[in-house]
Amino acid sequence: MAESFIESCGNFSRTFSISRDGYVDAHNKLRRALMKDVKISNMFELKYNPNLEDELRKMKSCEDINHGPNFRVNYKPNGKMMTFVQKLTEKLNIAYKVNFPTPAIESFHPGQSFIAWCNLNVKCNGEYVDDKNEKKSFETHEILIFGPKGTYSESDFKFGETGSDCPNGISTAPCKRNCGLCEGPEVPVKTTTPSKEMSAGNSIDADSAAPFASFVFVLTISLMANIVNDY
Rank of each mutant, 00 (worst) to 15 (best):
residue 56 L to M: 09
residue 53 E to C: 03
residue 119 N to P: 12
residue 189 V to Q: 12
residue 15 T to P: 07
residue 205 D to H: 11
residue 90 E to P: 11
residue 118 C to F: 06
residue 176 K to L: 13
residue 163 G to F: 02
residue 156 D to F: 05
residue 158 K to P: 07
residue 38 V to L: 03
residue 130 D to H: 14
residue 16 F to T: 01
residue 156 D to G: 05
residue 225 A to S: 15
residue 105 I to S: 09
residue 143 I to D: 11
residue 99 N to F: 09
residue 13 S to H: 08
residue 181 L to C: 08
residue 157 F to V: 04
residue 38 V to P: 04
residue 197 E to C: 10
residue 85 V to R: 02
residue 82 M to L: 03
residue 228 V to I: 02
residue 27 H to Y: 05
residue 116 A to C: 03
residue 111 G to V: 02
residue 58 K to L: 05
residue 61 S to G: 01
residue 93 N to G: 12
residue 58 K to N: 11
residue 5 F to L: 04
residue 32 R to F: 00
residue 70 N to M: 01
residue 216 V to C: 14
residue 142 E to L: 07
residue 8 S to P: 09
residue 16 F to R: 00
residue 37 D to I: 04
residue 124 C to H: 12
residue 197 E to F: 04
residue 163 G to K: 01
residue 41 S to F: 01
residue 188 P to L: 06
residue 67 H to E: 07
residue 54 D to N: 07
residue 219 L to F: 03
residue 79 G to E: 07
residue 97 K to N: 12
residue 166 C to S: 10
residue 95 A to P: 06
residue 136 K to H: 13
residue 220 T to Q: 10
residue 192 T to Q: 13
residue 208 S to W: 10
residue 27 H to W: 02
residue 25 D to C: 13
residue 126 G to W: 05
residue 135 K to M: 13
residue 174 P to R: 07
residue 117 W to C: 12
residue 57 R to K: 09
residue 174 P to E: 14
residue 192 T to S: 15
residue 169 G to A: 05
residue 85 V to M: 05
residue 101 P to M: 00
residue 198 M to V: 07
residue 200 A to T: 08
residue 133 N to L: 09
residue 107 S to V: 09
residue 71 F to R: 00
residue 41 S to G: 00
residue 27 H to I: 09
residue 180 G to S: 07
residue 38 V to K: 04
residue 173 A to H: 02
residue 10 G to Y: 05
residue 203 S to F: 06
residue 157 F to R: 06
residue 222 S to N: 08
residue 37 D to F: 03
residue 23 Y to P: 04
residue 49 N to S: 06
residue 185 P to Q: 05
residue 103 P to R: 10
residue 204 I to P: 11
residue 49 N to E: 02
residue 50 P to A: 14
residue 110 P to H: 01
residue 181 L to V: 03
residue 177 R to T: 08
residue 169 G to V: 04
residue 14 R to K: 12
residue 115 I to T: 11
residue 61 S to T: 02
residue 25 D to P: 04
residue 66 N to A: 15
residue 181 L to I: 01
residue 17 S to A: 01
residue 183 E to A: 04
residue 132 K to E: 13
residue 169 G to M: 03
residue 199 S to K: 08
residue 27 H to N: 13
residue 74 N to M: 10
residue 45 E to A: 12
residue 172 T to E: 11
residue 203 S to C: 12
residue 123 K to Y: 14
residue 109 H to S: 14
residue 115 I to G: 11
residue 206 A to S: 12
residue 136 K to A: 06
residue 66 N to M: 10
residue 112 Q to D: 15
residue 207 D to P: 08
residue 212 F to Q: 14
residue 52 L to E: 03
residue 14 R to I: 13
residue 163 G to I: 05
residue 15 T to M: 09
residue 82 M to G: 09
residue 49 N to R: 00
